[in-house]
């Protein structure tokens, strides 16, 4: 008896339901997206710090890429047993350029946006979690 109670207590609420229903999947995707965009934000900041500055035209230039932070997301039911939902995340991949007379000035210069590409990421909800 004790072991059964202990097992139930330790297992806790199930978070890995294959098909939790659309509202629950929507909510879990929202959390997933927040976490994902945070990761992309970290990558973007690392790209700025690790910018490769090269000499060019009597000065220096460096390029880097950042993502978001604005984004939109939605989920879709698929009818698939293995993957009942897919999640769509839309954001922009932004390409920046820094220019300066010296490496230091280039590094300190605010980046100029040179290109913006629309990105759609498609994730799958399989075995109760968003897979990437």
């Amino acid at each position: 008896m004790l072991s059964v109670v202990l097992a139930l207590t330790l297992s806790g609420p199930s978070t890995a339901v294959a098909d939790p229903g659309k509202p629950a999947a929507q909510k879990s995707f929202e959390q997933f997206v927040n976490s994902w965009m945070s990761k992309l934000d970290r990558i973007g900041r690392m790209n700025i710090l690790g910018i490769d500055i090269m000499p060019r035209d009597q000065g220096f230039v460096g390029r880097y890429v950042c993502y978001g932070p604005e984004c939109k997301f939605s989920i879709k039911e698929t009818g698939s047993h293995e993957t009942p939902f897919v999640g769509l995340l839309h954001y922009s991949e932004k390409h920046f350029l820094k220019k300066g007379e010296t490496r230091q000035k280039t590094f300190q210069c605010p980046g100029m946006l040179t290109k913006k590409i629309r990105v759609t990421e498609i994730f799958r909800f399989t075995r109760g979690k968003w897979v990437y």
């Binding site: 946006l113 290109k115 590409i117 759609t120 990421e121 799958r124 897979v131």
Partner: peptide
């Protein structure tokens, strides 16, 4: 005013 050059869009397939 940003003009998207060459690559119009990216679709990233995850999982």
């Amino acid at each position: 005013e940003v003009v998207v050059v060459e690559v119009r869009e990216k679709i990233v397939l995850r999982g």
